[in-house]
Amino acid sequence: MQPSIRHTYLWLPLCLLFLGGAVVAGLIYGTVPLTPSELVDILLHPQSSGLKSTVVWQLRLPRVGLAALVGMALAVSGTVFQAVLRNPLADPYILGVSGGAALGAVLALTFFSVQSYVVPSLAFSGALLALFLVYLVARAHQAATHTLILAGVMVGSLCTAMLMFLLLYAPADPMRNALFWLAGNLARGEERWLPYGAGVCMILVLLLWSRAGLLDVFTQGEDVAADLGVDIGRERMFLFCAAGLLVAIAVALAGLVGFVGLVVPHAIRLLWGAGHTRLIPAAAIVGAGFLVGADAIARTVLAPAEVPVGVVTALVGAPFFLYLLRLRGR
Protein backbone atom coordinates (compact mmCIF):
# COMPACT_ATOMS: atom_id res chain seq x y z
CA MET A 1 0.00 0.00 0.00
CA GLN A 2 1.18 3.48 -0.71
CA PRO A 3 2.65 5.42 2.20
CA SER A 4 0.53 8.44 1.29
CA ILE A 5 -2.96 8.90 -0.04
CA ARG A 6 -2.85 12.00 -2.22
CA HIS A 7 -4.55 13.34 -5.32
CA THR A 8 -7.82 12.07 -3.98
CA TYR A 9 -9.67 14.74 -5.94
CA LEU A 10 -8.96 12.69 -9.08
CA TRP A 11 -11.20 9.82 -8.02
CA LEU A 12 -14.45 11.12 -9.42
CA PRO A 13 -13.26 12.00 -12.94
CA LEU A 14 -11.28 8.76 -13.19
CA CYS A 15 -14.19 6.63 -12.01
CA LEU A 16 -16.61 8.36 -14.36
CA LEU A 17 -14.16 7.97 -17.22
CA PHE A 18 -13.96 4.25 -16.50
CA LEU A 19 -17.73 3.87 -16.36
CA GLY A 20 -18.17 5.94 -19.52
CA GLY A 21 -15.62 3.86 -21.41
CA ALA A 22 -17.25 0.65 -20.25
CA VAL A 23 -20.72 1.81 -21.27
CA VAL A 24 -19.51 2.87 -24.72
CA ALA A 25 -17.76 -0.49 -25.13
CA GLY A 26 -20.89 -2.27 -23.91
CA LEU A 27 -22.96 -0.47 -26.54
CA ILE A 28 -20.49 -0.82 -29.43
CA TYR A 29 -19.21 -4.36 -29.07
CA GLY A 30 -21.22 -7.53 -29.60
CA THR A 31 -22.17 -9.92 -32.36
CA VAL A 32 -23.29 -6.99 -34.50
CA PRO A 33 -20.32 -4.64 -34.87
CA LEU A 34 -20.98 -0.89 -34.65
CA THR A 35 -18.81 2.13 -35.21
CA PRO A 36 -18.95 4.98 -32.67
CA SER A 37 -20.61 7.25 -35.23
CA GLU A 38 -23.26 4.62 -35.94
CA LEU A 39 -23.89 4.38 -32.21
CA VAL A 40 -24.31 8.16 -31.90
CA ASP A 41 -26.65 8.13 -34.87
CA ILE A 42 -28.75 5.33 -33.39
CA LEU A 43 -28.90 7.00 -29.99
CA LEU A 44 -29.98 10.30 -31.57
CA HIS A 45 -32.75 8.62 -33.54
CA PRO A 46 -34.58 6.33 -31.13
CA GLN A 47 -37.53 5.96 -33.49
CA SER A 48 -35.59 4.51 -36.39
CA SER A 49 -36.00 0.84 -37.11
CA GLY A 50 -33.50 -1.65 -38.41
CA LEU A 51 -31.35 -4.36 -36.93
CA LYS A 52 -28.70 -2.14 -35.37
CA SER A 53 -31.22 0.16 -33.79
CA THR A 54 -33.13 -2.79 -32.34
CA VAL A 55 -29.91 -4.31 -31.04
CA VAL A 56 -28.89 -1.09 -29.29
CA TRP A 57 -32.26 -0.01 -27.95
CA GLN A 58 -33.89 -3.33 -27.16
CA LEU A 59 -30.91 -5.47 -26.21
CA ARG A 60 -27.72 -3.65 -25.39
CA LEU A 61 -29.10 -0.68 -23.45
CA PRO A 62 -31.22 -2.79 -21.06
CA ARG A 63 -28.35 -5.21 -20.67
CA VAL A 64 -25.81 -2.46 -19.99
CA GLY A 65 -28.30 -0.99 -17.52
CA LEU A 66 -28.76 -4.32 -15.75
CA ALA A 67 -25.01 -4.94 -15.62
CA ALA A 68 -24.40 -1.45 -14.23
CA LEU A 69 -27.10 -1.89 -11.61
CA VAL A 70 -25.92 -5.32 -10.50
CA GLY A 71 -22.27 -4.25 -10.51
CA MET A 72 -23.08 -1.22 -8.40
CA ALA A 73 -25.18 -3.19 -5.92
CA LEU A 74 -22.56 -5.91 -5.50
CA ALA A 75 -19.60 -3.53 -5.17
CA VAL A 76 -21.35 -1.34 -2.60
CA SER A 77 -22.66 -4.25 -0.55
CA GLY A 78 -19.21 -5.85 -0.65
CA THR A 79 -17.73 -2.59 0.64
CA VAL A 80 -20.21 -2.47 3.50
CA PHE A 81 -19.78 -6.11 4.53
CA GLN A 82 -16.01 -5.75 4.46
CA ALA A 83 -16.13 -2.65 6.65
CA VAL A 84 -18.62 -3.96 9.18
CA LEU A 85 -17.01 -7.39 9.46
CA ARG A 86 -13.55 -5.76 9.41
CA ASN A 87 -12.60 -8.43 6.93
CA PRO A 88 -11.19 -7.35 3.56
CA LEU A 89 -12.05 -10.80 2.17
CA ALA A 90 -15.75 -10.66 3.00
CA ASP A 91 -17.93 -11.13 -0.03
CA PRO A 92 -21.51 -9.97 -0.64
CA TYR A 93 -22.80 -13.52 -0.42
CA ILE A 94 -21.27 -14.09 3.01
CA LEU A 95 -24.54 -13.92 4.94
CA GLY A 96 -26.15 -16.90 3.23
CA VAL A 97 -28.02 -14.70 0.78
CA SER A 98 -26.89 -16.81 -2.17
CA GLY A 99 -28.15 -20.02 -0.59
CA GLY A 100 -31.53 -18.46 0.12
CA ALA A 101 -31.78 -17.16 -3.43
CA ALA A 102 -30.85 -20.56 -4.87
CA LEU A 103 -33.48 -22.26 -2.76
CA GLY A 104 -36.10 -19.74 -3.82
CA ALA A 105 -35.22 -20.14 -7.50
CA VAL A 106 -35.41 -23.93 -7.33
CA LEU A 107 -38.71 -23.83 -5.47
CA ALA A 108 -40.09 -21.53 -8.13
CA LEU A 109 -38.84 -23.69 -10.99
CA THR A 110 -40.06 -26.87 -9.30
CA PHE A 111 -43.53 -25.94 -8.14
CA PHE A 112 -44.68 -22.83 -9.97
CA SER A 113 -42.77 -22.96 -13.20
CA VAL A 114 -45.20 -20.84 -15.19
CA GLN A 115 -44.29 -17.22 -15.48
CA SER A 116 -40.77 -15.97 -15.77
CA TYR A 117 -41.27 -13.37 -13.03
CA VAL A 118 -41.91 -16.05 -10.42
CA VAL A 119 -38.28 -17.14 -10.37
CA PRO A 120 -36.70 -13.77 -9.56
CA SER A 121 -39.40 -12.95 -7.00
CA LEU A 122 -38.96 -16.22 -5.15
CA ALA A 123 -35.17 -15.91 -5.38
CA PHE A 124 -35.52 -12.45 -3.88
CA SER A 125 -37.80 -13.75 -1.12
CA GLY A 126 -35.38 -16.59 -0.42
CA ALA A 127 -32.49 -14.15 -0.13
CA LEU A 128 -34.49 -11.94 2.24
CA LEU A 129 -35.56 -14.94 4.30
CA ALA A 130 -31.95 -16.08 4.67
CA LEU A 131 -31.01 -12.55 5.70
CA PHE A 132 -33.88 -12.45 8.17
CA LEU A 133 -32.76 -15.72 9.78
CA VAL A 134 -29.26 -14.31 10.24
CA TYR A 135 -30.84 -11.14 11.62
CA LEU A 136 -32.83 -13.12 14.20
CA VAL A 137 -29.69 -14.88 15.40
CA ALA A 138 -27.84 -11.58 15.56
CA ARG A 139 -30.63 -9.86 17.47
CA ALA A 140 -31.09 -12.61 20.01
CA HIS A 141 -27.40 -12.56 20.75
CA GLN A 142 -26.30 -8.96 20.37
CA ALA A 143 -23.89 -10.95 18.36
CA ALA A 144 -20.25 -10.36 17.66
CA THR A 145 -19.26 -10.20 14.02
CA HIS A 146 -17.87 -13.72 13.90
CA THR A 147 -21.21 -15.01 15.19
CA LEU A 148 -22.86 -13.24 12.27
CA ILE A 149 -20.48 -14.77 9.77
CA LEU A 150 -21.05 -18.20 11.30
CA ALA A 151 -24.81 -17.68 11.26
CA GLY A 152 -24.55 -16.67 7.59
CA VAL A 153 -22.53 -19.74 6.71
CA MET A 154 -24.98 -21.95 8.60
CA VAL A 155 -28.04 -20.43 6.95
CA GLY A 156 -26.28 -20.89 3.60
CA SER A 157 -25.55 -24.54 4.39
CA LEU A 158 -29.10 -25.08 5.58
CA CYS A 159 -30.42 -23.72 2.28
CA THR A 160 -28.01 -25.91 0.32
CA ALA A 161 -29.08 -28.96 2.31
CA MET A 162 -32.75 -28.21 1.66
CA LEU A 163 -31.87 -27.74 -1.98
CA MET A 164 -30.22 -31.16 -2.11
CA PHE A 165 -33.24 -32.64 -0.38
CA LEU A 166 -35.52 -31.01 -2.95
CA LEU A 167 -33.38 -32.50 -5.66
CA LEU A 168 -34.38 -35.97 -4.47
CA TYR A 169 -38.06 -35.17 -4.77
CA ALA A 170 -38.32 -32.75 -7.60
CA PRO A 171 -37.79 -33.79 -11.18
CA ALA A 172 -34.21 -32.92 -11.90
CA ASP A 173 -34.90 -30.61 -14.85
CA PRO A 174 -35.98 -27.66 -12.68
CA MET A 175 -32.94 -28.21 -10.53
CA ARG A 176 -30.64 -27.94 -13.51
CA ASN A 177 -32.51 -24.92 -14.81
CA ALA A 178 -32.20 -23.28 -11.41
CA LEU A 179 -28.48 -23.90 -11.33
CA PHE A 180 -28.14 -22.39 -14.79
CA TRP A 181 -30.35 -19.54 -13.69
CA LEU A 182 -28.17 -18.90 -10.66
CA ALA A 183 -24.90 -19.09 -12.55
CA GLY A 184 -25.03 -15.38 -13.25
CA ASN A 185 -26.66 -14.16 -16.42
CA LEU A 186 -27.26 -10.63 -17.59
CA ALA A 187 -29.39 -11.57 -20.60
CA ARG A 188 -32.63 -11.67 -18.64
CA GLY A 189 -35.68 -10.52 -20.45
CA GLU A 190 -37.19 -8.91 -17.37
CA GLU A 191 -36.79 -5.30 -18.46
CA ARG A 192 -39.80 -4.06 -16.61
CA TRP A 193 -38.11 -4.91 -13.29
CA LEU A 194 -35.08 -2.85 -14.09
CA PRO A 195 -36.47 0.61 -13.18
CA TYR A 196 -37.79 -0.60 -9.82
CA GLY A 197 -34.57 -2.43 -9.00
CA ALA A 198 -32.58 0.61 -10.06
CA GLY A 199 -34.73 2.92 -7.95
CA VAL A 200 -34.43 0.84 -4.78
CA CYS A 201 -30.71 0.25 -5.32
CA MET A 202 -30.04 3.95 -5.84
CA ILE A 203 -31.86 4.81 -2.62
CA LEU A 204 -29.94 2.15 -0.70
CA VAL A 205 -26.60 3.25 -2.12
CA LEU A 206 -27.30 6.89 -1.29
CA LEU A 207 -28.45 5.90 2.18
CA LEU A 208 -25.23 3.97 2.73
CA TRP A 209 -23.20 6.83 1.32
CA SER A 210 -24.86 9.19 3.77
CA ARG A 211 -23.56 6.95 6.54
CA ALA A 212 -19.98 6.94 5.24
CA GLY A 213 -18.74 8.29 8.58
CA LEU A 214 -20.43 5.40 10.34
CA LEU A 215 -18.74 2.88 8.03
CA ASP A 216 -15.37 4.54 8.67
CA VAL A 217 -15.88 4.18 12.40
CA PHE A 218 -16.95 0.52 12.04
CA THR A 219 -13.61 -0.39 10.46
CA GLN A 220 -11.96 0.44 13.79
CA GLY A 221 -13.70 -2.46 15.47
CA GLU A 222 -16.92 -2.39 17.41
CA ASP A 223 -15.28 -1.65 20.73
CA VAL A 224 -13.61 1.48 19.40
CA ALA A 225 -16.68 2.41 17.40
CA ALA A 226 -18.76 2.33 20.59
CA ASP A 227 -16.28 4.70 22.24
CA LEU A 228 -16.58 7.01 19.25
CA GLY A 229 -20.31 7.25 19.96
CA VAL A 230 -21.89 4.55 17.80
CA ASP A 231 -24.92 2.57 18.93
CA ILE A 232 -23.35 -0.62 17.63
CA GLY A 233 -26.28 -3.04 17.69
CA ARG A 234 -28.73 -0.78 15.90
CA GLU A 235 -26.34 0.68 13.36
CA ARG A 236 -24.87 -2.69 12.42
CA MET A 237 -28.35 -4.04 11.84
CA PHE A 238 -29.11 -1.08 9.59
CA LEU A 239 -25.94 -1.59 7.58
CA PHE A 240 -26.51 -5.34 7.23
CA CYS A 241 -30.09 -4.92 6.12
CA ALA A 242 -29.27 -2.24 3.56
CA ALA A 243 -26.32 -4.19 2.13
CA GLY A 244 -28.23 -7.49 2.27
CA LEU A 245 -31.16 -5.95 0.39
CA LEU A 246 -28.77 -4.77 -2.31
CA VAL A 247 -27.41 -8.29 -2.70
CA ALA A 248 -30.88 -9.80 -2.77
CA ILE A 249 -31.91 -7.44 -5.58
CA ALA A 250 -28.72 -8.19 -7.52
CA VAL A 251 -29.25 -11.95 -7.18
CA ALA A 252 -32.89 -11.74 -8.18
CA LEU A 253 -32.00 -9.75 -11.29
CA ALA A 254 -28.89 -11.58 -12.47
CA GLY A 255 -28.18 -14.67 -10.38
CA LEU A 256 -24.83 -15.01 -8.65
CA VAL A 257 -22.18 -12.89 -10.31
CA GLY A 258 -18.88 -13.43 -8.54
CA PHE A 259 -15.81 -11.32 -7.93
CA VAL A 260 -17.32 -7.84 -8.36
CA GLY A 261 -18.14 -7.40 -4.68
CA LEU A 262 -14.71 -8.59 -3.64
CA VAL A 263 -12.32 -7.03 -6.09
CA VAL A 264 -13.83 -3.61 -6.74
CA PRO A 265 -13.88 -2.23 -3.17
CA HIS A 266 -10.40 -3.61 -2.68
CA ALA A 267 -8.98 -2.02 -5.80
CA ILE A 268 -10.41 1.36 -4.83
CA ARG A 269 -9.04 1.13 -1.30
CA LEU A 270 -5.61 0.46 -2.77
CA LEU A 271 -5.94 3.48 -5.04
CA TRP A 272 -7.56 6.09 -2.83
CA GLY A 273 -7.70 4.70 0.70
CA ALA A 274 -10.50 3.31 2.78
CA GLY A 275 -12.41 6.53 3.57
CA HIS A 276 -16.02 5.68 2.77
CA THR A 277 -17.01 9.16 1.69
CA ARG A 278 -15.01 8.35 -1.43
CA LEU A 279 -15.10 4.58 -1.31
CA ILE A 280 -18.87 4.13 -1.50
CA PRO A 281 -19.51 6.27 -4.59
CA ALA A 282 -16.27 5.14 -6.23
CA ALA A 283 -17.17 1.47 -5.65
CA ALA A 284 -20.66 2.12 -7.01
CA ILE A 285 -19.36 3.73 -10.20
CA VAL A 286 -16.42 1.39 -10.77
CA GLY A 287 -18.50 -1.68 -9.85
CA ALA A 288 -21.05 -0.67 -12.46
CA GLY A 289 -18.34 -0.04 -15.06
CA PHE A 290 -16.52 -3.25 -14.22
CA LEU A 291 -19.52 -5.47 -14.80
CA VAL A 292 -20.60 -3.56 -17.92
CA GLY A 293 -17.08 -3.97 -19.33
CA ALA A 294 -16.84 -7.61 -18.31
CA ASP A 295 -20.18 -8.28 -19.96
CA ALA A 296 -19.03 -6.54 -23.15
CA ILE A 297 -16.01 -8.85 -23.22
CA ALA A 298 -18.19 -11.88 -22.43
CA ARG A 299 -20.44 -11.08 -25.39
CA THR A 300 -17.65 -10.36 -27.84
CA VAL A 301 -14.71 -12.75 -27.51
CA LEU A 302 -16.55 -15.83 -28.76
CA ALA A 303 -19.31 -14.04 -30.72
CA PRO A 304 -21.88 -15.13 -31.74
CA ALA A 305 -21.57 -17.29 -28.63
CA GLU A 306 -20.93 -15.72 -25.25
CA VAL A 307 -18.89 -16.61 -22.19
CA PRO A 308 -20.53 -16.69 -18.74
CA VAL A 309 -19.88 -13.24 -17.31
CA GLY A 310 -18.58 -14.71 -14.03
CA VAL A 311 -15.71 -16.28 -15.96
CA VAL A 312 -14.75 -12.88 -17.33
CA THR A 313 -15.03 -11.06 -13.99
CA ALA A 314 -12.66 -13.61 -12.47
CA LEU A 315 -10.29 -13.72 -15.46
CA VAL A 316 -10.04 -9.93 -15.64
CA GLY A 317 -10.45 -9.17 -11.96
CA ALA A 318 -8.01 -11.59 -10.41
CA PRO A 319 -4.87 -10.63 -12.39
CA PHE A 320 -5.68 -6.92 -12.06
CA PHE A 321 -6.07 -7.40 -8.35
CA LEU A 322 -2.77 -9.24 -8.10
CA TYR A 323 -1.12 -6.44 -10.07
CA LEU A 324 -2.53 -3.85 -7.68
CA LEU A 325 -1.31 -5.79 -4.68
CA ARG A 326 2.15 -6.04 -6.15
CA LEU A 327 2.21 -2.41 -7.25
CA ARG A 328 1.34 -1.24 -3.79
CA GLY A 329 3.74 -3.67 -2.15
CA ARG A 330 1.45 -5.27 0.32
Binding site: I5, N87, P88, G213, D216, T219, Q220, G273
Partner: peptide
Protein backbone atom coordinates in the same frame (compact mmCIF):
# COMPACT_ATOMS: atom_id res chain seq x y z
CA UNK B 1 -7.06 -3.87 8.27
CA UNK B 2 -7.84 -0.93 5.99
CA UNK B 3 -5.62 1.97 4.99
CA UNK B 4 -7.23 5.33 5.71
CA UNK B 5 -5.76 8.70 5.05
CA UNK B 6 -4.58 9.84 8.48
CA UNK B 7 -6.73 12.95 8.29
CA UNK B 8 -9.81 10.78 7.71
CA UNK B 9 -8.77 8.56 10.56
CA UNK B 10 -8.70 11.56 12.92
CA UNK B 11 -12.00 12.82 11.49
CA UNK B 12 -13.64 9.65 12.88
CA UNK B 13 -13.41 11.44 16.22
CA UNK B 14 -15.93 13.93 14.88
CA UNK B 15 -18.51 11.20 14.24
CA UNK B 16 -20.83 12.28 17.07
Amino acid sequence: PFGFQVREMVAMGRYI
